[in-house]
């Protein structure tokens, strides 16, 4: 590895005017990711942001790296081809709940299944913003939108559960109100071999304002969220006295100091344990605090590496091919 320059956040700010609505959660996410880029130890010219269509997908225009703004839902497919061609690149996919889970749902699950080394960052505002306010695959049931004037009757996806089901090896959830956590999670994702799926809860001020209020509100968020740290017990609450404990196979909320409960009785987060990740994806409001942080981080062969390895093995065995001699191999005959 050659020396990576020391970057400042401004090195990743492009000359394009940012055009999201005032107050949009995307500003904070953009800023946190630009900050993360200064910490991942990669050269600017080796970074590529690929997006689809939607508010979030304008992202690449604003980052001073290579970038592709593409078509609706296909960013994961485009990024896969790019990463396969040049595995040295650090390729990010920026997508939204509509782009990534509705029209691009098929590409999403296959990208996660293959474990190709992309960093998929999905902004989840539970609404279609760019098309002006229709419900999305993550909209809460009952939500009144332009296309559901009497309320949503579809059951929503839980993105982390979908990612886990598809076989993702790195799964995280974070939130626009916590820029530092976004930065930390993105930096950690970039150290991961294989695919990283990051859901960022994001507020759409125009069409679904306050969708995540309960977990962002400064007065309440300590009680409504649980911060995940690998190897640490799952403690939450303003007074840091609540925790998650297993009762049989199911998690329950307990209070430390009550009924003889101590920290030692709580679930210790293990990002390598499938069952822990599975349990975490099912924790939802209002029954439980919403988990934020890295749910899962496991080692597995990555698709881009395996493809490369296979090519190297075949080349080692058969030698580097030459089409000139290839055409003359096999059954040929001379006509005089």
């Amino acid at each position: 590895m050659t020396d990576v320059p020391v970057y400042k956040k401004k090195d990743f700010i492009s000359d394009q005017e940012v055009k999201w609505c005032p107050g949009c959660g995307d500003y904070a996410i953009l800023s946190s990711i630009q900050m993360a880029l200064t910490k991942i130890g990669k050269k600017k010219e080796d970074l590529v942001f690929v997006s689809g269509i939607g508010c979030s997908s304008r992202f690449p225009y604003y980052v001073e790296t290579y970038g592709m703004h593409s078509i609706h839902g296909r960013a994961t497919a485009i990024a896969s081809g790019l990463k396969l061609h040049n595995p040295e690149l650090e390729v990010f996919v920026v997508t939204g709940d509509g782009d990534g889970l509705a029209i691009g749902g098929n590409h999403m699950i296959h990208t996660l299944r293959r474990n190709i080394g992309l960093r998929v960052i999905m902004f989840n505002n539970e609404i279609y913003g760019l098309t002006k306010g229709q419900y999305s695959p993550t909209s809460a049931m009952g939500l009144v939108t332009k296309s559901t004037p009497y309320g949503v009757v579809d059951r929503p996806f839980i993105p982390a559960a979908l990612a886990l089901g598809a076989g993702a090896t790195f799964i995280a959830r974070t939130i626009d109100a916590d820029p530092k956590q976004i930065t930390d999670v993105v930096v950690e994702a970039c150290q991961h071999k294989g695919v990283a799926f990051i859901e960022v809860l994001q507020n759409c001020v125009i069409f679904n304002d306050g969708a995540h209020d309960e977990v962002t509100n400064k007065d309440r968020r300590d009680d409504t969220t649980v911060r995940l740290e690998h190897g640490k017990p799952m403690i939450f609450g303003k007074d840091r006295n609540k925790g998650l404990m297993l009762k049989g196979f199911n998690p329950v909320i307990v209070t430390i100091g009550e009924n003889g409960i101590t920290e030692k009785d709580l679930i210790v987060h293990d990002a390598t344990d499938y069952n822990v990740a599975s349990m975490l994806t099912r924790l939802s409001r209002p029954e439980f605090p919403l988990p934020l942080g890295v749910f899962r981080n496991v080692e597995a062969p990555s698709y881009d590496e395996e493809v490369q390895k296979q090519i190297e093995n075949v080349t080692k065995k058969k030698g580097k091919g030459d089409m000139v001699s290839f055409l003359k191999s096999g059954e040929t005959w001379q006509v005089k």
Binding site: R74, S80, L84, H85, H107, H110, V307, Q310
Partner: peptide, 24 residues
């Protein structure tokens, strides 16, 4: 033709087929 500097990707659908090629 893996040893001829050829990379093939069997995608999940036709759209991913062309999109991966655009990315590459």
């Amino acid at each position: 033709l893996k040893n001829y500097n050829v990379k093939t990707f069997q995608a999940e659908d036709e759209i991913a087929g062309i999109c991966s090629a655009i990315g590459a």
